[in-house]
Amino acid sequence: MCPCGLKARYAVQSCSPPSYTEPRPVRNLRSIMRITWMDKVINKHILERTGLPSMVDLLIRKNIRWTGHLMRMSPDRLPKQVLYFQLSSGHRKRRRPRLRFNDTIKRNLKLRDIKTDSWTSLSQQRNKWRATVK
């Protein structure tokens, strides 16, 4: 039987070992820890055993650090102007609205348990901001 539950004669055509689909660092950790895909250990457990953060955590941390850097920039810099940019005319299509950068910031701040009403003043103090993000 294949891990996905298909019979052996169809397994070659439809299934590939998870090592081809998982991120490279986790694949390397699996080989170091001698865990094969047949042991059915998920990536989350491997990262917990090693104490390493997941890729999502790393991306959220980098996003929040960049946001703090943006807040400390002078107002005449282009990245800060783009952060507060508003369109004067035009409209969006009917459907689910696209996610804006400000919405992503608020979501990431909530995931890190940082208050969304006072984060701008906290970001002005670089050392405290870096400690909060970690």
Rank of each mutant, 00 (worst) to 15 (best):
H69T: 09
S16F: 03
P3A: 13
V41D: 00
D113A: 13
V26R: 04
T36R: 11
P79Q: 03
V12R: 06
S16I: 10
M38K: 08
S14L: 12
R49T: 09
H91E: 14
L87V: 03
D39Q: 00
K44L: 02
V12G: 05
F101Q: 06
D113N: 15
I105T: 04
L6M: 05
Y20G: 13
C2L: 08
Y10L: 11
L109Q: 14
D117H: 14
R98K: 14
M33A: 08
C4W: 02
I114N: 11
G90R: 05
Q81N: 01
G68H: 03
Q81P: 04
A11N: 02
M38H: 06
R24A: 15
A11Y: 00
S16V: 14
K62W: 00
L6P: 00
M1D: 15
L70F: 01
L122G: 05
D57T: 09
W66D: 11
T120L: 13
L58W: 04
Q124N: 10
P79T: 02
R34C: 13
N43F: 00
L78V: 12
H69A: 07
G68P: 00
L58K: 15
R72C: 03
Q13N: 08
L70G: 05
R92E: 14
Q13R: 12
P97F: 01
N127A: 14
W119Y: 15
M1W: 12
D113F: 08
S31V: 04
T67P: 04
L58Q: 14
R34H: 12
P25M: 10
I32W: 02
T67G: 05
R27V: 07
G68L: 04
T67R: 03
S88C: 04
R96V: 15
D39R: 00
R61N: 10
L111P: 10
N28P: 01
K93H: 08
D117M: 06
H45P: 00
R92H: 13
K44G: 01
P25V: 12
R65A: 02
C15G: 01
P53F: 14
D57V: 05
M38C: 02
S14A: 09
A8H: 04
R126H: 11
V133W: 13
P75Q: 11
F101I: 12
K110I: 13
T50G: 03
L122D: 08
Q124G: 05
T104H: 10
K80P: 00
H91A: 10
L59R: 14
P97K: 11
K44C: 01
K110A: 15
L47Y: 10
N28C: 08
R30D: 08
A11D: 02
H45D: 13
K115T: 13
M33R: 08
S19W: 05
M1L: 14
T36L: 04
L70I: 10
I64K: 06
R126P: 00
Q124I: 10
G5H: 08
Y84C: 07
R92M: 11
I105Q: 02
